[in-house]
Amino acid sequence: MKKNLIIACAFSLSMAACIGTDKDKEVRGSTADTGKLAVSTGKPTAAATVEIPGLDTMAANNAILLTGNDRMQYSDTLFKVKASEKIKVTFKNIGKMPKNSMGHNFVLLAQGTDFTNFATEAMKARDDDYIPKNLSSSIIAHTRLVGPGETDEISFSVPNKGIYDFLCSFPGHYGTMRGKLVAE
């Protein structure tokens, strides 16, 4: 009986340790694009108030060079730009696989866009290179779908400061080909 009580107490203590404290809640899950953790500032929960590790050491650069490869990866997943100024994105598919099985693009979403819903709708838009026309108001800018060795270049601006999601809308790629563009 005494042995069972000791085991029960030890189990209770180990479970309590797993729950964590409010301090543990300061670090949240991956930004899904950088693979790095986002840290809450304790301020309102708007996207612009989230601290992204490494962002403070980045200089704003409105000339973005980005590649995609056959491993379904972007060369970079975090960019800092200046809001309301022209941004130029040069995107190249450096892979070797055919466009119909491993095409890539860059799609910048408007703030507040439901990321998963957008990606789901994009999969249905094969005839439009996976850019869903019914969600065009959710897109700030996008490149065309490029195959191996192809490059596309686009220019645009983001009107407001904040954090914007980007992804490759080719079916199944958004899980790993995604990132954040932070406008200051």
Results as ranks from 00 to 15, higher is better:
T31E: 12
I94S: 06
A48D: 08
K124N: 13
D127N: 14
K133F: 03
V39M: 12
M72Y: 07
F115S: 06
T45R: 10
A46S: 14
G68N: 05
I131Q: 11
G112L: 05
F79C: 03
G68A: 12
L78W: 06
V89W: 01
P132L: 03
D33P: 01
N100M: 06
L66R: 02
K99S: 10
S40I: 10
V81W: 06
T45S: 11
A122P: 11
F91I: 05
D56C: 01
S75Y: 02
S40C: 13
T120R: 11
A110C: 07
L37R: 10
D114I: 03
P98N: 09
P53M: 15
F118E: 11
L37I: 06
A38R: 13
E26I: 14
F115A: 08
N117L: 07
N62G: 01
I52M: 14
F79K: 00
M97Q: 15
L37K: 13
M72D: 10
V107T: 15
K133L: 09
V89T: 02
F91T: 06
V39E: 12
P44R: 09
I52T: 13
A125H: 05
K92G: 02
K43G: 10
K43R: 12
N69M: 09
K92W: 01
D70H: 00
A110H: 00
N105T: 09
T49A: 13
S75R: 03
G112R: 08
P132E: 02
A47C: 05
T120V: 08
S136T: 08
E51Q: 15
R126E: 13
D24S: 10
S136E: 12
A63Q: 15
G54I: 06
R28Y: 07
M58Y: 01
V89Q: 05
S40Q: 10
R126I: 09
S84N: 12
L135C: 02
P53V: 14
K124D: 09
T41G: 12
G95N: 01
P44C: 12
S75Q: 04
S136L: 08
T57D: 14
I94G: 02
D24I: 04
K99M: 14
E85D: 03
I52V: 15
A63R: 12
S75E: 04
G42A: 06
T34S: 13
D128P: 02
T120A: 13
F115L: 05
S137Q: 03
K92T: 15
K88Q: 09
E121V: 05
K23Q: 14
A125T: 05
G29R: 07
T49M: 11
D127R: 10
S137P: 00
T113A: 06
L108T: 01
S136M: 07
N69H: 11
F106Y: 07
M102P: 00
T90D: 01
V39K: 11
N61S: 11
K92E: 07
T77M: 08
F91V: 06
R28D: 08
D76I: 01
K124W: 03
G112H: 07
A125Y: 04
A48C: 07
K99N: 14
D114W: 05
G95E: 01
S75W: 00
P53A: 15
V81P: 06
F118Y: 15
T34P: 00
G35R: 08
